[in-house]
Each structure stands twice: as structure tokens, then as C-alpha cells.
């Protein structure tokens, strides 16, 4: 749990840093996205590694829950909790909801099966080695996605749950790996809470900025609502760079 959790924590930190580039001009995040896509096989290797990590994390969690339930066939009449945090007692339930969100999230943005109109959002890179290359406009895609209040609310709710999951998980890693003792316990606890809160706020800032209009995208505005009724051009169904 701890090892896979650690990998996933590192991933969500990286993912968040990547996403925060939405606050810069569209060029930045589109360059970044194109850089990731240009990795080719390496990208798929990383994706496979992450997928295996998620599967292992879930599998271990299922085993953990089954074994732990078996260890106490008869529960207590007067159930009492001394100090186990609410987050720690809901890890498995919130984990399932977060998993459902990840699946939706992948379908939404990575595979784009739920929103084929995203393919029409094109962007021509202005700088660097890939100057002039036409790519999928990730910035516009994010803005378009989050302009729908329901999507934004669901996203904020989901990252809130994930932050809550991490509120127990982050600190737990140290104890399981034997890196916690009385000298470090306080620091680890404070870091965990700070991390969970910061993770939630920074993630929630993205949809909130889009909804409030702080972050906007010209590409989305020019396509406007017509994008949803347009049929897909043939050449736009796959990315020009792949």
C-alpha cells in the first residue's frame, strides 16, 4: 500500500504542477502536452507503469479489507473510536469513489471518448523546436471542460475526496516504511495536513478560475457553442503529431 501509494502521491504532485500551467498563456501548457506526447513509447511505458501501480494499489486494498474483516468476525456492540481520523476510517470507500473519478477523468481528457468535439480544438505552437506544429489545444480543452458548472463541481468534489484520502495516506507512508518516530511524528502530521489542504486548494483553483473567467481561451470563444453540433473533420480524429 505504502510503496504504490508513494508512487501515486508523486504522480499526483507532478500532475498538479502540469495542470497549474493553465494559469500561463496557452503556449506553455500546449508545449508541455506536446512534449509529453512526443515521448512516444516512453509515455506509454510510464502510463503502463502507472496503470499497474493503480491496479496493485487497489488489489492490495481489497486484500487488506478482506483480511481485516476476517480478523474480527464479531464486531462490537458499543463501537468506540479513540483517535482514528475520519479519513483513515473511510479509506476504502473514498478510494472507490476516487477510482471511479479517475476512470471518468481518463475517458474525458486522455481518451476523449466522452467529448469528441475536443478534437476540433487545434493550436499551432509558436516557439521552440516544434514551432509551427499543429497540436490539440489542451488549454482550450481544459477551459471548455470547466466552463460547464457540473463538470467543475464534480471535479472539485473529486479532488476534495482525493485530498481527504491523502490526508491519511500521505503520513501513513512514513509509518509503514519505518520512517516515523516521536521526533518526526509532529512534522509528518503537519506536513500531511498542509499537503492535503494545498493539494485541494491548488486543484480547485483551476475550475474556479475558469468558471469565474479569470482563465479564458480565445479558441474556445471562437468555436463557441457550434463546436458541439459540428461533425468531426476526418483528419482531426487523430493527433497530427502522433
Amino acid at each position: 500500500m505504502a510503496l504504490t501509494g508513494l508512487i501515486l502521491v508523486l504522480f499526483v504532485i507532478g500532475h498538479l504542477i502540469g495542470n497549474l500551467q493553465i494559469f500561463a498563456e496557452p503556449e506553455v501548457i500546449n508545449q508541455y502536452a506536446h512534449f509529453l506526447h512526443s515521448l512516444g513509447p516512453l509515455l506509454w511505458l510510464v502510463r503502463a507503469f502507472l496503470l499497474i501501480t493503480v491496479i496493485l494499489h487497489v488489489w492490495m486494498a481489497v486484500l487488506l479489507v478482506i483480511e481485516n474483516r476476517k480478523a474480527r468476525p464479531q464486531g462490537y456492540e458499543g463501537e468506540h473510536t479513540h483517535r482514528a481520523s475520519y479519513a483513515s476510517r473511510t479509506m476504502q470507500y473514498i478510494g472507490i469513489i476516487v477510482l471511479a473519478f479517475i476512470l471518468f477523468h481518463l475517458a474525458h481528457f486522455t481518451l476523449r471518448v466522452t467529448h469528441p468535439e475536443y478534437e476540433q480544438l487545434r493550436y499551432v505552437l509558436q516557439e521552440g523546436a516544434y514551432q509551427g506544429t499543429e497540436v490539440l489545444d489542451v488549454h482550450a480543452m481544459m477551459v471548455m471542460g470547466f466552463q460547464k458548472p457540473l463538470v467543475s463541481l464534480f471535479y472539485i468534489f473529486a479532488v476534495g475526496l482525493l485530498a481527504f484520502h491523502l490526508r491519511h495516506g500521505f503520513g501513513s507512508i512514513f509509518q509503514t516504511l519505518g520512517l516515523r518516530n516521536k521526533y518526526w511524528a509532529g512534522t509528518i502530521e503537519k506536513t500531511t495536513i498542509t499537503f492535503a489542504v494545498a493539494y485541494f486548494l491548488l486543484n480547485a483553483a483551476i475550475p474556479l478560475s475558469v468558471m469565474s473567467g479569470v482563465v479564458d481561451n480565445e479558441n474556445v470563444n471562437s468555436i463557441g457553442e457550434s463546436a458541439e453540433v459540428l461533425t468531426l473533420p476526418e483528419d482531426a480524429s487523430s493527433e497530427s503529431t502522433e
Partner: peptide, 25 residues
């Protein structure tokens, strides 16, 4: 057939000798 530790530290809170969860680490 004991269960697994999920780092909730209920154990040391209930311990009559208040043994610290540090020992688990």
C-alpha cells in the same frame, strides 16, 4: 489470523501502558 495495521493508532490509545505506536514504525 490477526488483521493488518492501517496506521490509525487506536492501539496505543487503548494500551493500559500507553506504549507508543513508534515501536510499530
Amino acid at each position: 489470523g490477526f488483521g493488518n495495521c492501517t496506521n490509525q493508532y487506536e492501539c496505543s490509545a487503548a494500551c493500559p501502558k500507553l506504549i507508543s505506536e513508534d515501536f510499530i514504525g
